[in-house]
């Protein structure tokens, strides 16, 4: 069966009950996708499936067939960081870094559908991503800044 990860097709021979997370990490080597709980409660394994944020630990690989998956490794283009990645660096939103890929991908899907969110909308949007280091303050600011930067870019 075929899945598309970060713009490239992969032929895989995984058993259908394997999770997308297992295939990404152990078959294809996209280890930027992290496992924090395995039950969809922490958001560390968030990836984009056809542009939507999903917990890869809850997606059977059979469900990902033919879908376009974006992992954190696929977010920067031609060596240029995505504005969210840059904002996370600049704002000090990264501490241990384990939740970071999941939070950034959740924020990406969110900003794609809501480019000018309020603080409370951002907090709602990332409520499924646990972070234990930052207290969320700098993460929320980074997402706000990335949204504003993108907004300026459009004008």
């Amino acid at each position: 069966m075929k899945i598309n990860v970060n713009g490239r097709d992969y032929k895989i021979a995984a058993k259908p009950w394997r999770t997308l997370l297992e295939v990404l990490r152990y078959e294809l080597g996209f280890t930027g996708t992290k496992e924090g709980c395995g039950t969809g409660s922490c958001g560390s394994c968030t990836v984009l499936m056809d542009g939507k944020a999903v917990n890869a630990c809850l997606v059977f690989i059979a469900e990902a067939k033919g879908k376009a998956i974006t992992t954190i490794e696929g977010l920067s283009r031609e060596g240029k960081l995505h504005p969210l990645q840059q904002a996370f660096i600049d704002e000090g939103a990264v501490q241990c870094g384990f939740c970071t890929p999941g939070v950034i991908l959740t924020a990406k899907a969110f900003l794609d559908s809501n480019p000018q969110p309020s603080e409370s909308q951002i907090r709602e949007a990332i409520a499924g991503n646990l972070c234990r280091c930052t207290g969320y303050d700098k993460i929320v600011r980074a997402i706000m800044n990335a949204a504003q930067a993108a907004d300026k870019g459009r004008v």
Partner: peptide, 11 residues
């Protein structure tokens, strides 16, 4: 910015 931040935002 942290010296380890780039490696963490890119996975």
């Amino acid at each position: 910015p942290r010296v380890d931040a780039l490696s963490k935002v890119t996975g």
